[in-house]
Amino acid sequence: MSCQEITILLNDYLDGVLSPTQKQEVEAHLKECSTCQELLSNLQQVRVTLREFPQISVPPSLAEKLYQIPAKKKAKWPTWLGWLARPLPQQITATLAALSLAISFYTLLPNRAMLAKYLNQQLHLGYHHISSLWTQAESITVNIEKVSDSLKAPWQALKEEGKED
């Protein structure tokens, strides 16, 4: 067995779960190879060290904060406002808030006329863009119809030829 093959088996060797044949092979290799011997010794040290790291206790200040979390979550909304925290009213409230914000922004704006003009321009540009797209789509439809008409006659001829055969 090569060093690489032995390396993979070292943890199982230390756990004592190798088959007798594998165990013999590992031990035979270890007698000959100082590199693998050293790796085994370090692996043993690592395994013991990892198990020796003790569990650390939760600091009392942290425990206190954790105890308060459920209470804090409940107290987030006063009881009489609790319905606002439910999903649907939340969405409606958010939409109304966004709308009122947009309306107040528009009505309170000093140069409202300019904004109206700009919005009007943008609307017209959009409308113009849509209508040009519509015209293009119509011309494509007409072209498709033309092509399909031009194919109809040869198709009929081919069908009739087929019947005669």
């Binding site: 390396t7 070292l10 943890n11 050293e38 790796l39 370090n42 692996l43 040290q45 395994r47 990892l50």
Partner: peptide
Amino acid sequence: RLQLARLLA
């Protein structure tokens, strides 16, 4: 664990 053993070495 093998990586840790090599780093320890």
